[in-house]
Design a protein around this nucleic acid. Structure first.
Lengths: 109, 109
DNA sequence: AAAACTAGTTTCCTAAAGGTAACTAAGCAA
DNA sequence: TTGCTTAGTTACCTTTAGGAAACTAGTTTT
C-alpha cells in the first residue's frame, strides 16, 4: 500500500478520506444502511448533531452520489434519505469502522 | 447498526472516527503497515503533509497506542515509527478505505 | 571552522468545521 | 387565527485543523 503521492489525489486513502473522513458522515451513512430514514428520525438517532450540520452533510453526501433524497409532497412535507448504489459500495469501510469501535476500541469502563 | 446514541461515546463509529477520522492519520498508518519507517522517509512518502503536522499526528497516534516510536541514539539521530499490535487491528478498516478509493472512487480522468 | 543532516520545535497565521439560536414556509388541526 | 409539525435556512460566532517559515541541537562530514 506504500507509495509516493506527488499529487495527493493519487493516494487512494486520501480520496476516501475526502469523501467520508469527517466527524459525521460515517455516522449518518450507517443509519441509512438499515433502510430509508426521514430527516426527523435522523435527528433522533443522532441527537448530538445539530440541525444545520445534519442538513449540510446530507447535501454533500447527495452531491457525492452516496445517498438519494426523496421528497414526498404529501399533506405534511416528508423527506426520506436512502443509500444509493454507490453508497452501498462503502459497506466494507463502514462495517470495518463499526466493528473496530465495538471490538478493539470500546468505551472506557 | 442503527441505534440511538444518548452519549456520543456509545456509538462505535464515533469512537473510531475520533481516533482515525482526520485528514492524515489513515495515510500515515497505511505507510507503516509495510514495515517500520523513519521520520524522513514519511516526509518523502507523503510530500503534501507539513513537518509540524506530521510530528503532531505521530505523537497522537503514539498516545492512542496505535504506533510505537523507536529512538535509536546512533551517530546521527534515527527515529523509526512502527505499527503497534493495537494498530494492526485497524488493518480491515484501512484496507477497506484503500480498496474503496482505488476501485469505487478513482481520480477523475 | 563551516556546512550539512536528522528530527524535530516554535511562532504566527489562515481556513475549515462545527455549533447556537432565531427565523421561514407550507399545510393542517383546534 | 393561533399554534403545531416538518424540514429546513440564515446569521453569527467559536473551535479545531492545518500550514509556512524560521529556529534548534547533536553529530558528522569536508
Amino acid at each position: 500500500m506504500r507509495t509516493i503521492h506527488h499529487d495527493p489525489k493519487d493516494c487512494h486513502i486520501i480520496r476516501t478520506v475526502e469523501v467520508i473522513g469527517n466527524k459525521w458522515k460515517p455516522v449518518i451513512l450507517v443509519q441509512l444502511f438499515d433502510g430509508p430514514v426521514r430527516f426527523g428520525k435522523l435527528r433522533l438517532f443522532i441527537p448530538s448533531i445539530s440541525q444545520k450540520i445534519l442538513t449540510q452533510q446530507l447535501r454533500e453526501l447527495e452531491q457525492d452520489g452516496l445517498i438519494v433524497r426523496n421528497h414526498y409532497k404529501e399533506k405534511v412535507p416528508r423527506v426520506e434519505y436512502e443509500i444509493s448504489e454507490k453508497g452501498k459500495t462503502l459497506t466494507p469501510v463502514l462495517q470495518a469502522m463499526f466493528d473496530w469501535g465495538k471490538n478493539e476500541h470500546p468505551p472506557k469502563s
